[in-house]
């Protein structure tokens, strides 16, 4: 079985993101593996362990994306490939999907593609569905548990987390899934993986390698601008009186504000 996990380095979730006067976004200096992808990487390694075969980690981006790939290798993924081409500089999700789907096709024998449920920086998951659409494969979003997977028979049965509860679905393989954090406990790197990651050759696939030309990834959408969230203003009001009076007044206030 061949599992592919697709990842991206995103700004540290603890970083303070600001928008400069000129409209540029300052995302902070530090990049981390998109937190949701930690689960996707772990699931790929667990599936490889349970079903045999191989796991590949893919990313799209410049050299700053190498770290996410190394992290995947350190956890136990077998090979890492970075997709990059100058034509992808200002890609949108459609261009992203075209390039990633082409890379998955190029790998050839893929049974399952796993994404973390969304990207933490732009809080979006449309690129995942677009990759599935480009491949023409079924898409199962928000998977909280893979109940069974049979690469030979080409089937998967998975639990999805929905707002109403869980939903169990089956699909034929190959398929694309996105995973939520209930699916596993992220694995730590191993020293054996770290050694492999430190020495790994990570090929870079350009548009030529993917059989695409620049028009296939040229952005259909333009970002018009960024602005910061309005500052939240808070006021503090101290309630005087005995503890009983304070409690009574607090309850009144909470009811007035429709919090209770």
């Amino acid at each position: 079985m061949h599992v592919v996990v697709v990842t991206k380095s995103t700004p540290d979730t603890e970083a303070t993101v600001t928008v400069e006067a000129g409209g540029n976004v300052n995302w902070g200096d530090k990049l981390v593996v998109n937190p949701w992808d930690e689960y996707a990487i772990t699931e790929a390694v667990l599936l490889k362990g349970a079903h045999g075969g191989q796991a590949t980690i893919l990313t799209l981006g410049g050299e700053e994306q190498q770290e996410a790939l190394k992290h995947g290798l350190a956890i136990g993924v077998d090979q890492a490939i970075r997709i990059w081409d100058p034509a992808l500089q200002n890609h949108d999700s459609l261009g992203y999907a075209a390039a990633v789907a082409a890379a998955i096709r190029k790998l050839g024998d893929v049974d399952l593609v796993i994404f973390g449920k969304e990207l933490s920086d732009i809080a979006s998951d449309q690129h995942i569905f677009q990759v599935a659409r480009r491949l023409g494969w079924n898409m199962i979003g928000f998977v909280s548990k893979i109940e069974s997977l049979d690469a030979g028979a080409g089937t998967i049965r998975a639990q999805r987390l929905t707002e109403r509860g869980t939903e169990t679905v089956t699909s034929k393989l190959p398929a694309v899934i996105s995973v939520v954090k209930d699916i596993n406990e992220p694995k730590y790197p191993t020293f054996i993986g770290i050694r492999k990651a430190a020495k790994a050759e990570m090929p870079v696939w350009g548009l030529g390698d993917l059989g695409l030309d620049a028009s296939a990834v040229s952005p259909r959408t333009q970002v018009a601008g960024h602005r910061e969230l309005p500052k939240r203003e808070g006021t503090v009001e101290m309630i005087e009186g005995s503890p009983q009076e304070q409690a009574a007044r607090l309850v009144e206030k909470l009811l007035e504000e429709k919090i209770l």
Binding site: P189, I194, R195
Partner: peptide
């Protein structure tokens, strides 16, 4: 080295 840095982070 790359290995030392990855180990430190892990």
């Amino acid at each position: 080295t790359d290995e030392q840095r990855l180990f430190q982070e892990a």
